[in-house]
Design a protein around this nucleic acid. Structure first.
Lengths: 163, 163
DNA sequence: ATTTATATTTAGGAATACTTAATATTGTTA
DNA sequence: TAACAATATTAAGTATTCCTAAATATAAAT
């Protein structure tokens, strides 16, 4: 199992996406996608190649290996699953995106798997049709205890009400 | 709003917990709790003091300021909320703990808030009494499509089945 | 063949979080 | 109260990660 940092995963994702859209990924494109200089990208590509996650010819385009591709897809998938979940629990879109970006690198494979199952279960149980509105009311109205928590109330609430 | 790194939050949490249990937090205890050398702790305490998150006298114990205390509690709370959620969706305990530890530092305040509301909503709707078993079956049996996803299946599944 | 675009190498910088060794302070006790 | 032990601090330095600018190398295009 290859261990990857969040930044490495961001590079893999970028390579995956660029390859997907234009057939191959060039250093310049990767750098641009990540907002860094080409020199930075080359350094990272060396590291990723050492880890067996990409292959490339000198001065040529970069290609993901199967391993690299799997990690890229898994990371993209984790992002999507987290984002879907955050949207479902009515996190404002911008925050949802940011949190998904940050957390996708820490979500373990198992937890991702369970989250997918949970979403599927809710869908299966009609959550999106039946409960979604109810939760929206629940979330926005003052129907449950404190709707605008202070930090202390967060703490009290979550430590007392949840087993 | 004071910005804190994950490590800084870990120190704040440790100070909070130690203070809670023995009344005051000494450098040695903090170091021990985090598995680092006292010298490292002192460095970090300087930084936290500059940020206004702790107060201390030379060679004396460390005390959280209101700001520091709020961040510590919020972080502890995020951990708890994430852990509760992961347990609910049947993530094995060890993974759940690890993911909560990692992700507590990235979970935004808003998302944490929504997650608390969501858990409260489910509780309110009888999830823990009625559906928990159902989800357990759903999660462990082969009742839904592929129960042992390959990475590619994860990707396909999550990108297709969830809007 | 020369120009232009792109890629790479080299050398180095900033941030973060850690270490050991030496020194300072405090508290204890002989 | 002087010396010892425990703890805290400072100083100097290491490793890692990710970034940069500038110089150089290669490839592609005219």
């Amino acid at each position: 199992m290859v261990d990857t940092t969040g930044t490495e995963e961001d590079y893999l994702k970028a390579i995956f996406t660029i390859t997907d859209s234009k057939g191959f990924a060039r250093t310049k494109d990767i750098a641009k996608a990540l907002g860094v200089r080409p020199a930075t990208t080359v350094e990272m590509l060396k590291k990723l190649e050492e880890k067996g996650l990409i292959k490339r010819e000198h001065y040529g385009p970069t290609v993901l290996t199967d391993k690299g591709s799997r990690i890229a897809m898994l990371t993209i998938n984790k992002h999507k699953v987290l984002l879907d979940f955050f949207k479902m629990i009515l996190v404002p879109l911008e925050e949802a995106e940011k949190d998904a970006c940050d957390m996708e690198h820490n979500l373990s494979k198992v937890t991702n798997e369970q989250l997918i199952k949970f979403m599927a279960f809710l869908s299966h149980e009609g959550f999106f049709d039946i409960w979604a509105r109810k939760f929206k009311d629940f979330s926005t109205s003052g129907k449950m205890k404190p709707m605008k928590f202070s930090d202390e109330e967060y703490y009290d609430f979550a430590t007392q009400n949840m087993k």
